[in-house]
Amino acid sequence: MIKRLLLPFLAVAAFAGAAHAQVSAQDTASPEALVKSVVNDVMASVKSDKDMQAGNIAKISALVEQKILPNANFQKTTQIAMGRNWSKATPEQQKVITDEFKTLLIRTYAGAIAQIRDQTVQYKPYRGSPEDTDATIRTQVINKGEPIQLDYRLEKTAQGWKVYDINVLGAWLTEAYKGSFNTIVGQQGVDGVIKTLQDRNRQLANAKS
Score class of each variant (00 low, 15 high):
59 K>M: 04
56 N>Y: 02
31 P>W: 06
38 V>F: 01
54 A>I: 00
33 A>T: 13
44 A>P: 04
52 M>R: 06
37 S>I: 09
58 A>S: 10
32 E>F: 12
60 I>P: 01
30 S>C: 12
57 I>V: 08
49 D>L: 01
40 N>K: 15
31 P>L: 15
43 M>A: 03
55 G>V: 01
35 V>W: 02
47 K>Y: 07
53 Q>K: 11
48 S>W: 04
34 L>Y: 06
53 Q>R: 15
37 S>G: 11
40 N>Y: 11
38 V>L: 05
49 D>C: 02
60 I>Q: 00
56 N>M: 07
31 P>N: 13
59 K>I: 00
58 A>V: 09
32 E>P: 05
40 N>W: 10
59 K>W: 00
34 L>W: 01
41 D>F: 08
45 S>E: 15
58 A>P: 04
50 K>V: 11
39 V>Y: 13
55 G>F: 02
40 N>I: 08
49 D>K: 01
56 N>T: 06
51 D>P: 04
51 D>V: 05
36 K>L: 12
39 V>P: 03
32 E>D: 14
34 L>N: 07
35 V>H: 02
36 K>T: 13
54 A>F: 06
57 I>R: 03
36 K>F: 13
56 N>W: 05
54 A>C: 05
59 K>C: 03
35 V>S: 03
39 V>S: 10
33 A>R: 15
38 V>N: 07
34 L>F: 09
32 E>R: 11
40 N>D: 15
44 A>C: 07
60 I>S: 01
38 V>W: 00
42 V>G: 03
51 D>Q: 08
38 V>E: 13
38 V>D: 07
44 A>E: 12
48 S>N: 14
30 S>T: 15
57 I>W: 04
53 Q>V: 04
46 V>A: 02
45 S>Q: 15
43 M>G: 03
42 V>Y: 07
35 V>I: 15
43 M>H: 05
41 D>W: 08
42 V>M: 10
38 V>Y: 03
37 S>L: 08
39 V>C: 14
50 K>A: 14
46 V>T: 01
57 I>K: 05
40 N>L: 11
57 I>G: 06
56 N>A: 14
35 V>T: 06
50 K>W: 15
44 A>I: 05
58 A>G: 07
46 V>M: 00
50 K>C: 09
55 G>C: 02
44 A>R: 13
41 D>Y: 07
42 V>P: 02
40 N>M: 13
52 M>V: 04
54 A>W: 01
34 L>A: 09
37 S>F: 14
57 I>D: 00
54 A>T: 04
33 A>F: 11
30 S>H: 09
42 V>Q: 06
54 A>H: 08
60 I>H: 04
37 S>R: 13
52 M>W: 06
36 K>P: 11
31 P>K: 08
33 A>G: 15
55 G>R: 02
48 S>K: 10
41 D>Q: 12
32 E>T: 12
42 V>K: 01
31 P>A: 13
43 M>T: 00
58 A>Y: 03
48 S>Y: 04
50 K>R: 14
45 S>C: 05
44 A>H: 14
60 I>C: 02
30 S>V: 10
48 S>P: 02
47 K>L: 06
56 N>S: 12
48 S>F: 03
